[in-house]
């Protein structure tokens, strides 16, 4: 493959924010999200560098991310330690008061989202945050498009219930 580094750099630029956010919503700190995200791209790069074909890069990266997150939670459960959770959620561009409100809104949605099952979390993130179509989500999840549509509907309903509690 010609210029694999350049091509992978483009993939990285395109997906790093999405993958980071996807991971961050499922772990408890920025450090964990950074470590797992870098793992995802390191694995992707190793495969890419060997010249192995990746048909659908986003699906591939999300697949690694899901596996890494699952491993991370397994390891964490085996070797539980106390850790700080007072992470800053968003960049401090707005004023302090505004930022604190944004932080609390984001944190509330993040917490409720985390209470949904993994697949519901994934479809909501992909559909409403990353902007993927049902068809693209169906490809990533290897499920029929109709199933994804139903999942989105149910996930929204469940999230609404959690936010109202």
């Amino acid at each position: 493959m010609a210029y694999p580094k350049k091509k992978f750099a483009k993939l990285y630029d395109k997906y790093v924010e999405k993958i980071y956010r996807f991971v961050f919503l499922k772990v408890s700190s920025q450090e964990e999200a950074q470590d797992l995200t870098s793992q995802v791209f390191t694995k992707g790069w190793r495969k890419f560098r060997k010249g192995e074909k990746i048909d659908n890069p986003s699906a591939y990266l999300y697949q690694i991310a899901r596996a890494e997150i699952a491993n991370h939670h397994r390891e964490k459960a085996r070797f539980q330690t106390v850790q700080a959770t007072a992470d800053q959620l968003i960049d401090p561009n707005p004023g302090l008061e505004e930022k604190s409100k944004l932080d609390s809104d984001v944190a509330a949605v993040k917490n409720c989202l985390a209470k949904l099952n993994n697949e519901y979390q994934d479809v909501l993130v992909w559909k409403y945050i990353d902007g993927y179509s049902n068809k693209e989500i169906a490809q990533m999840m290897e499920k029929p498009e109709g199933t994804v549509r139903v999942m989105v509907h149910r996930a929204l309903k469940e999230l609404r219930g959690k936010l109202a509690d």
Binding site: K5, F8, A9, Y12, D13, V16, E17, Y20, R21, F24, L25, Q30, A33, Q34, T37, S38, F41, T42, W45, R46, L89, I90, D91, L102, D105, V106, V109, K110, L113, L124, V125, Y128, I129, L159, L163
Partner: peptide, 25 residues
């Protein structure tokens, strides 16, 4: 409300540093 989560972004310095580190592996 879900879209407020778009504000979650990685630190720019970390993004650049990690990219360099991965590609130089």
């Amino acid at each position: 409300k879900i879209k407020t989560l778009k504000q979650i972004k990685p630190n720019k310095d970390w993004v650049l540093f990690t990219k360099k580190e991965i590609l130089e592996e």
